[in-house]
Design a protein around this nucleic acid. Structure first.
Length: 708
RNA sequence: GGCGUGGUAGCUCAGCUGGUUAGAGCGCAGCAUUCAUAAUGCUGAGGUCGAAAGUUCAAGUCUUUCUCACGCUACCA
């Protein structure tokens, strides 16, 4: 592992268009927070930077819909994010926002720099333009029929129903969401970053860790899925990517550049530079110099993100940084995968999420319980799952029964036997240690063993293996419980008080150590432990370093004769009804379910009369070869037979479909699909989740009847 | 159909470059124990490592085929 003078850690900028949920936390914020708090505890120079991402079409679009200013939306979420992060103890050194003046200047400087160096290529392309609103339309401002799933409300960049990525020109019957009119294609010029030209060095840098033969990182330290995803992009060939957009909400392309009117920076030229402007703002606030963190070779830049951001942080942003020159490239991008919730994907629109602000209200003062459950199940290498039951189990079985109980036993007994004063010990007094019940163990050797355990925990954090590190923490607590159990001080107190002193003393050292090492995972608990021990709170200024030195030197972290505090419970049980209430809350969209699919444009009676819909029955059905979704159906219309190809194979087997009465749009122009001519279309009803149901006449109704 | 990822104890998952009787946590059973929020500790039951074939002295670990799940992709009038 390379050694660094200073660290700059970033967490993905949350997009100011919806509140924070546990998926966000477990993806990019908790992991970064653990890492940063840890590095502070070992005295590293480290800065933790983040901010709200506040530009882009989704925000203006929503503002227009709700009849408010974009500013109102971003202010609302910026404030909400700050509260949620602070509430959960995410310890940013600085949290900024991309709407700030400083950010606009910084990202413009970047653009100007690249422009002046001739890094961009200028290209003309055709984009949709709304004649009435007199403006180009961002992808999100165009809706139309999805060419893939026929959803009539697909957006220009993607169809939310089938999830496919689209470009606006693929949409069938495009419509401007501003005026409802059909947009026209117009030529527009944009500046492109020629990623194809950077392919070679990007590949070397990602896969070898070297840039022009200089070692920058070790690929084996990177997560497999991160490198894998980059490779698949590189293998597919990189395309020049537009760095500007025709938008009205974002950072202006610098005015002096010809043709800049109406152009804004593309989000990936804007948001990641937010990391830089936020660092600048931090430096200003603290009276420090921001530049070494970004520009000095002995600085480590680390991006914590979710897997959806890998390509941008590993390819596009590094390309931008290198094109600028001066800047360091990230030394690691430890992207997490996704966290599912109770068996399903987290979904904002379905309200299938645990919202951070709601958790903070429902479970006041219990942030560490959620942090613990999320870290324990963090999607570090593969998708993982959060369930309320597992949250309850982790809390009750591990935090309450193991950790809190161990601490409580120690504090209670110390108060009982010594009136809360740490006993002085005879170092030659032996006891049974946690490793072996048959061998005698001594206070000084046990401190060394504790040192080793903590060392292992540290190594895991450095490897970004936070789940293992958390396990290490709990193992230390288990060993504390074992010491008590094996030695049973409550039995010895009368006969062998000197032995009991050693036992209680070593346990107090354990608790003291835990108050330090639990800090990255559970900062609030760390504070409580310090109160129990009557010690100063951890300030994250090298305390873990100090602890390790003391243990290595045989020095007691908690001194004899120190007066500790009175016992109280670190964690308390969570009952079933609390958990059941949370589960019941999931998916309650309430009134919000509203109009997902607005009623289409009005048509007149003649339009309707053009349709010829008939009753029919399916007589035969078979799968279309080499197509997952298609069934070839034979239909009996009474007076004739039809063949129809229908995209329902994902929902129905051929067997269950035969004999079904259906409604058939009979005068639809025939079309060849996968080599089979389809003569009509079967009418289906579809629910929110894409499930299909036949629209059928009553059983026994004759075939070929007109539906009107 | 193509590409990718994954299928290890009831549940959640570890198992690096192939090497002795396959591991952890939770749950379960029995025992010990009472300082502690009936918490803790010990012991134990439980797996033909998705299926089959192959390479090898040796395969959860490599190859092939198959199967299931998920992701992307094609087919969706």
């Amino acid at each position: 592992m390379r050694q660094f003078e200073r660290y700059l850690v970033t967490s993905a900028l949350p997009y100011a268009n919806g509140p924070l949920h546990i998926g966000h936390l477990s993806g990019a914020y908790l992991s970064a927070d653990i890492y940063v708090r840890f590095q502070r505890l070992v005295n590293k120079d480290i800065v933790f930077i983040c901010g709200s991402d506040e530009h882009g079409a989704a925000i203006t679009l929503r503002a227009a819909k709700e009849g408010i200013q974009p500013k109102a939306i971003i202010d609302k979420y910026h404030e909400s994010f700050q509260k949620s992060f602070e509430g959960m103890g995410i310890s940013f050194d600085h949290y900024d926002r991309t709407s700030s003046q400083l950010h606009h200047e910084t990202s413009q400087e970047f653009f100007r720099n690249l422009f002046n160096k001739g890094e961009f290529i200028e290209k003309e392309s055709e984009q949709y333009y709304d004649e009435e609103a007199k403006q180009f339309l961002a992808d999100r401002y165009i809706t139309g029929t999805c060419p893939k799933c026929a959803n009539e409300n697909a957006y220009g960049d993607q169809c939310e129903k089938c999830g496919s990525a689209l470009s606006p020109t693929e949409l069938i019957r495009p419509k401007s969401t501003l005026t409802g009119k059909e947009p026209t294609l117009r030529k527009t010029r944009h500046w492109y970053l020629p990623l194809d030209k950077y392919e070679e060095w990007l590949r070397e840098w990602i896969t070898e860790g070297t840039l022009y033969d200089k070692v920058l990182h070790y690929p084996e330290d990177w997560k497999n899925h991160v490198i894998g995803q980059c490779k698949s992009w590189l293998d597919g060939g990189l395309q020049p990517r537009s760095m500007t957009r025709d938008l009205d909400w974002g950072v202006d392309v610098p005015k002096e550049i010809p043709g800049s009117e109406g152009k804004k920076l593309y989000v990936w030229m804007d948001a990641p530079i937010g990391y830089i402007s936020s660092t600048k703002a931090w430096a200003e606030k603290k009276g420090k110099d921001w530049e070494p963190y970004w520009k000095s070779e002995d600085s480590a830049l680390i991006h914590f993100i979710g897997k959806d951001n890998i390509v941008f942080h590993c390819l596009i942003f590094p390309a931008i940084l290198k094109a600028h020159g001066d800047y360091v490239l990230p030394v690691n991008v430890p992207a997490n995968q996704f966290m599912n919730l109770e068996g399903d994907k987290i979904s904002t629109s379905k309200n299938w999420a645990v919202w951070v602000h709601e958790y903070l209200e429902d479970f006041e003062g219990r942030q560490d319980e959620l942090r613990y459950a999320l870290i324990k199940n963090m999607p570090e290498l593969k998708d993982s799952e959060f369930t309320w039951k597992s949250f309850q189990d982790a809390n009750n079985n591990e935090l309450v029964n193991n950790l809190a109980n161990f601490v409580n036993r120690v504090i209670v007994l110390t108060n009982k036997y010594y009136e809360g004063i740490v006993p002085e010990i005879d170092e030659d007094e032996g006891f049974t240690g946690p490793e072996s019940q048959s061998e005698v163990c001594y206070h000084d050797s046990e401190l060394i063993r504790l040192f080793d355990d903590i060392h292992e925990l540290c190594a895991n954090i450095r490897k970004y293996d936070f789940r293992s590190a958390l396990k290490n923490l709990m193992e230390i607590s288990t060993k504390g419980n074992q010491i008590l159990q094996f030695n049973e001080p409550w039995k010895l107190q009368k006969e062998q008080p000197e032995t009991v002193k050693v036992i209680m003393n070593i346990c107090l050292q354990y608790v003291t150590a835990i108050s330090v090492i639990c800090r990255p995972f559970m900062p609030f608990t760390s504070d409580k432990l310090r109160t129990l021990l009557n010690l100063d709170p951890i300030k994250e200024e090298g305390e873990l370093d100090d602890l390790l030195f003391q243990l290595a030197d045989g020095e007691h972290p908690l001194k004899a004769k120190h007066q500790i505090g009175k016992p109280f419970h670190l964690f308390s049980r969570i009952d079933d009804d609390v958990i059941e209430a949370q589960v019941a809350k999931l998916g309650n969209t309430g009134a919000k379910a509203a109009i997902k699919n607005p009623i289409k444009e009005t048509i007149n009676f003649d339009d309707f009369m053009k349709l010829d819909i008939r009753t029919a029955v399916i007589t035969e059905a078979e799968k279309v070869p080499k197509a997952d979704k298609l069934l070839k159906l034979a239909l009996d219309l009474g007076f004739e037979q039809r063949t129809v190809v229908s995209g329902i194979a994902a929902h129905f087997t051929p067997e269950e479909v035969v004999g079904k009465s259906v409604s058939l749009l009979a005068n639809l122009a025939p079309r060849k699909i996968r080599g089979v001519e389809s003569q009509g279309m079967i009418l289906m009803a579809e629910d929110d989740e894409g499930k299909l149901s036949f629209v059928s006449p009553e059983d026994g109704w004759p075939n070929g009847m007109i539906i009107k």
